[in-house]
């Protein structure tokens, strides 16, 4: 059930775009208004989220136990896993962002006969996750050829490299294959591993179905239900130069489906788990040097506490204390 609703939602989004373009002729809505709105929501939403996280005080450093902390000189410190310097933290962040180092430690836990609890290495999630994120990034960069008049050389080089197998025409992109395979793996994983299935929510399935929908619609448009790419570029170029216009014999419905799903993803992004794109940089266990023993970290929310000293107490009750025979410091 938790997977069904997101699946139906994505199907409805696809149908909305098809009906909107084919039946209602809302090309301008789906081709201009919604993409602009989605881009604005994405930009403003992510900034809002990151700023709101930035306003949360981080009173202390969270030491992680995956590496030896800096201690006595003859004990070797794990400089990357448990850094005390900015350089160490930056290295840790780079490894985290580009290579998903934390995920590399992923283990699978099994209860075997006995009963015996056993742990084993499980790199598949890391591999699929890394492939998915990298190919998604490369595909995004590759799409810049639709958004730039003189396509930058690095983008052209990337496209050359991506299609160098020269399979079919239009040339098959290696990233397309890896991307769809990785997303499919990440989806099937949620269905087949009982523990993962148990904790998977609609908010986990929806982005997967949506991204799979984007990938499938893109692949369909490039390799199967082809559309006029020049028309597509005329539209995208008109969008980025703020003079939006739908070309006269513009792109086919499949393009609007693809675009609408992407718009949905962008608009959904800041309000969902996908915003971990910004969040990873603000992870306290990753971005803080473990220097609690060297630097004093004062709680940022400490306010001046109203205190009542013994001196003041004695001033208040001196006479009564004397009468009761209690010794006082000042007469």
């Amino acid at each position: 059930m938790r997977a069904l609703l997101p699946f139906i939602t994505v199907i409805v989004l696809v149908l909305l775009a098809i009906v909107g373009v084919e039946a209602a002729n809302l090309q301008f809505l789906f081709g201009v208004v919604i993409p602009y709105a989605a881009a604005a929501i994405f930009l403003a939403g992510v900034i809002y989220k990151v700023v709101s996280w930035g306003r949360v005080p981080v009173p202390f450093r969270i030491p992680t136990t995956c590496g030896q902390q800096k201690t006595l000189p003859w004990i070797k410190q794990s400089r990357i896993e448990n850094p005390t310097t900015s350089a160490g933290v930056i290295t840790r962040m780079l490894l985290e962002v580009f290579l998903f180092r934390s995920l590399f430690r992923n283990l699978k836990t099994e209860l075997r006969e006995g009963p015996q609890l056993s742990y084993g290495s499980d790199k598949w999630l890391w591999l699929a996750g890394l492939s998915f994120h990298w190919t998604f990034l490369l595909i995004l960069i590759r799409h810049l050829r639709f958004f730039t008049q003189n396509v930058p050389i690095p983008v052209q080089m990337l496209e050359h490299l991506d299609s160098f197998l020269q399979i079919g025409l239009p040339l098959l992109y290696i990233t397309d294959v890896i991307f769809l395979a990785a997303v499919t793996f990440l989806l099937i994983r949620r269905f087949t591993i009982p523990q993962v299935k148990y904790i998977s929510l609609a908010a986990d399935y929806f982005p997967l179905f949506l991204i799979l929908g984007i990938g499938v619609s893109g692949v369909l448009m490039r390799y199967f239900i082809k559309t006029d790419v020049v028309g597509v570029k005329e539209l995208t170029m008109s969008l980025v130069s703020f003079s939006p216009a739908i070309p006269k014999d513009g792109p086919g419905t499949i393009f609007y489906v693809h675009l609408f799903l992407i718009s949905a993803l962008f608009a959904y992004f800041p309000f969902s788990k996908l915003v971990h794109m910004g969040g990873v940089f603000l992870s306290p266990t990753r971005n803080l040097a473990n220097n609690s023993r060297m630097v004093r970290h004062v709680n940022p929310w400490n306010y001046p506490v109203k205190v009542h000293t013994y001196e003041e107490y004695e001033n208040d009750f001196r006479e009564k204390m004397k009468t009761a025979g209690i010794p006082v410091e000042k007469e």
């Binding site: 881009a39 994405f42 930009l43 992510v46 900034i47 990151v50 700023v51 810049l144 958004f147 730039t148 008049q149 930058p152 170029m237 980025v240 130069s241 703020f242 910004g278 940089f281």
Partner: peptide
């Protein structure tokens, strides 16, 4: 600084042209 880089990347297609 991070947000400025992010905004720059997002608006790159608009700025580049």
């Amino acid at each position: 600084l991070g947000l400025a880089v992010f905004a720059g990347l997002v608006t790159f297609p608009f700025l580049y042209n």
